[in-house]
Simulated scan of single mutants.
Amino acid sequence: MNKASFLAVSAGVIIAASTVHLWTKWPLFGVTALTFSCMALTAAAIAVRPGKRIGIQARRLVDRYADSTSSAAQVEAQIILDKANAITFREDDLRARALWVSRGFAALSIASVALTVAFTAEVLRS
């Protein structure tokens, strides 16, 4: 979450820098910086979106096992399986969010290079 937040702030800075000036020398690089910054910001937003809270819920356990005729060993085995499934879901969600953060950083890198090229062209050709 911290990396995604950093990505969002960085993308915002690049967006602000991309739009503060009308790029006259190489405007395509200015537009590229803005486009990829927006892509990075979108990736950050996807990475920090609220997720489903899948896990072991006390009420569900009570409803499922309070009047169960299963043995303690069977109940314990089912609870362990439920825990394993919840952990697997969380790990999959974390991997998906990390992928979006990685994509965002790649887009931010391209945006930074494009903005640097556009800024350099403006400064050196002025």
Rank of each mutant, 00 (worst) to 15 (best):
K25S: 12
I79C: 09
K3F: 06
A33L: 04
A45D: 03
V9Y: 11
A111W: 02
E91N: 13
L108F: 11
R95Q: 10
A72Q: 11
D93L: 15
A66D: 06
S68W: 08
Q74R: 00
I15T: 05
L34S: 11
V31K: 05
E76T: 09
D82K: 02
I15Q: 01
A44V: 13
L115N: 00
F36A: 01
R49N: 12
R103L: 14
S109D: 00
D63I: 04
S10T: 11
A77C: 08
A58R: 03
I56L: 15
F6A: 14
W26R: 12
V31Y: 09
D92Q: 15
H21W: 10
V101P: 04
L7P: 07
W23K: 08
F119Q: 09
S112H: 05
Q57A: 07
V113D: 06
E76G: 09
E122I: 15
V101L: 09
F119R: 07
Q78A: 14
F29V: 03
I56Q: 08
P27R: 11
F29Q: 07
M1L: 06
A106D: 10
S37A: 14
V113L: 12
R125I: 14
L7M: 10
S10P: 03
R49M: 12
A47S: 10
L7K: 04
I14C: 02
R125T: 15
G55C: 14
S5T: 13
T116R: 08
K52V: 02
S109Q: 00
A84D: 04
S112N: 06
S37H: 02
A86F: 00
T35D: 11
L7G: 05
L124C: 12
A66R: 12
F36G: 01
I14R: 00
V20H: 11
W26A: 12
A111K: 02
S10A: 15
A33D: 03
V101A: 12
A84W: 04
R60G: 01
L7W: 06
V20L: 10
R90W: 14
F89G: 05
D82S: 03
G51M: 13
L7H: 07
A66V: 06
T69L: 05
G51P: 05
F89V: 08
A98C: 07
T42Q: 09
V13C: 05
E76P: 03
R60D: 04
A43T: 02
A111D: 01
R49C: 08
T24K: 15
F29W: 10
W23D: 11
A58E: 08
R53F: 02
W100R: 14
